[in-house]
Design a binder for these strands. Structure first.
Lengths: 341, 341
DNA sequence: CAAAAAATGATGTACGTACCTCATTTTTCT
DNA sequence: AGAAAAATGAGGTACGTACATCATTTTTTG
């Protein structure tokens, strides 16, 4: 099998290599007639740029950075490991990735960090940060200065023009609701809903999706107000304990945030999880174990490895002025049961 | 950021480029001492082969072929489209893929085709074929003649040394059972189980996984004997009709084969699908629509795009004598509900 | 119709690696 | 010690493309 090169293309088009180069790289001083001729030859012989040759010639290291929260539990750890792993396996591809962890409680700090980035140091940025106007503006400005941006797992409003990697959180909440509803059978009762914080748009959207499905299809179930743990054990104990005192008909629990460990451990002390349906987000060593010993019934997950690789592929494509292969880059809402772990 | 080249490596190791080349490519006439010296320098400066340069130099088109069944419905069509799409988008990578469809009812024909392949025409083969000794032997022989093989979605016994792309079918069946069981609530009754054929190991394993979970966890449910449609509408009508006459307590349906259309259309005529739980395999335009209008409750899917790309990545890696990145290549058992489509 | 402008051709270099040949040095063996 | 063998060095070529420079031809303009 012979793969046509620029030389073959020149011959087929009846022009010189120099002209082929002018057409392929959009250089000036080529007549429209010649452009058409070359274009026709491209179609005819099926010419495709040899990526290896282009990359070799460019021979530019691509430096990407993930901005992730400083505080977090197992899922965060997994994300970081995935970035490190990708960094290693993509070195031969001239792709480098690292992680910067910031205190997401302070939007100005985050915005300042983003603003302080020197575009000549970095080709692209994958950002996971709660919504906030200063952060959004800093992202916009950095993007205008030529750094490619991917919104990573968590999107800022009004930045739809930027690439996003992650799931539709409304659909994720709806999926959780469907499982809680169906798994509860014909039982009647309340659903406890726990989040780290309801300030993030992720949680809000998940909650909306959850309520929509429960209200539409499971009138026997009543979703309770969201409890916010702020990631603190003592607070979690207090508010969950409080709710359990006032409410003795709990048939299901939905933990909306990605770190289920604290809430589950707290609830365990007061409630027999075997009897109720528990759905959590994100696969971690903890949630996996909980699934296996029946403490929880399902995990709604977005694969962190996929997410990291997808973000890097998109950044790489943008850096090379290619269009990302969108079909490959959508992140699925995975449903994990004991059986398909 | 500076990426070290072989030249830097030679300098760091205090040897010539020629010696570096001898070490990197395992050529003879290098003392162990020098090998160690170069190896140490590789670690120290973090040298990694530039893939683009290697590929450019090799500059060999990789030709891969998918062997798929001749008969099939929507899922098969989707697979073929995915191969075609991959073929287009991987041309710039010197990777070419095509499809050969064979009549899987005739193992000798399949084996003959495989045996007739000229290793100088093809670098790798992805095979989806029912189990059979002649086919298995033909695969083995072709592999020994230097053609890389991936068992695609369907595995042959005793060929564990070959790469496999696809899901664990026992787990897939178990997952289906969990959903049928949980979604049925506290109802008591029978589960209709439909397959195109029970001769394939896929179906057998799915059935085993299904029964294991139902028997262990859902004593209110009774799985019926498998019905085989052979992909024929008239036969499907007859055997499904037969079973419905003798059995009036059906609360669930599990369609094990990848083409759910015929069975669903037949059952629809006799049963109100809204009242019972229906689980099928594989996402197709039909199953998607059925999920949306509530004819079915869940789809157990293996993403055909992932599967095709994964097979090609593995074949490419093997052709270049690299190890495939196994973490990335496992195919998940996806559970699709109306909410997370 | 000549001069200016635009279009095209001819040719060279570079990217990093693999593979080759030939010369030279070092080690091993008798 | 001397010959044979092994190890190492020096240097060139090629892969396909991008990006130069300069020469030459064709077209446009005044």
């Amino acid at each position: 099998m012979i793969v046509p090169t620029t030389k073959d293309l020149a011959e087929a088009a009846g022009v010189s290599l120099a002209t082929v180069d002018r057409v392929l790289n959009d250089r000036p001083n080529v007549s429209q007639k010649t452009r058409d001729k070359v274009q026709a030859a491209i179609e005819q012989i099926g010419f495709v740029r040899n990526l290896a040759a282009v990359n070799l010639l460019r021979n530019k290291p691509y430096r990407f950075r993930f901005i992730l929260p400083k505080r977090g539990d197992l899922y965060l750890k997994e994300l970081i490991q995935q970035v490190e792993h990708a960094n290693k396996s993509l070195r031969s591809d001239m792709t480098f990735a690292d992680v910067e962890q910031l205190d997401m409680g302070d939007p100005h700090l985050v915005a300042n960090y983003i603003s302080s980035i020197d575009p000549s140091d970095l080709d692209g940025l994958a950002i996971m940060a709660p919504e906030s106007p200063p952060v959004r503006d800093a992202i916009s400005r950095l993007n205008e200065r030529g750094v490619h941006i991917v919104q990573f797992l968590s999107a800022q409003e009004n930045l739809e023009q930027l690439d996003f990697v992650g799931v539709n959180n409304y659909a994720a909440g709806a999926t959780a609701a469907k499982i809680v509803g169906k798994f509860s059978g014909s039982k009647t009762g309340s659903i406890m809903i726990i989040s780290e914080t309801m300030l993030s748009s992720d949680s809000i959207e998940r909650r909306h999706g959850f309520d929509a499905v429960i209200n539409a299809r499971f009138e026997n179930l009543r979703p309770l107000p969201s409890l916010e743990t702020y990631g603190e054990v003592s607070r979690a104990k207090r508010i969950i304990g409080n709710q359990l005192e006032h409410c003795d008909d709990i048939v299901g629990v939905y933990i909306m945030s990605s770190e289920a460990r604290i809430p589950i451990e707290v609830i365990c002390e007061k409630l027999n999880l075997n009897d109720i349906t528990v759905v959590v987000h994100e696969r971690t060593p903890f949630s996996e174990a909980a699934l296996k010993n029946d403490q929880i019934d399902a995990i709604i997950a977005q694969n962190p490895g996929h997410a990291v690789r997808s973000a890097l592929r998109i950044l790489r494509a943008r850096s090379e002025a290619r269009e990302p292969n969108s079909a490959q880059e959508s992140i699925r809402i995975e449903i994990l049961l004991d059986e398909n772990l």
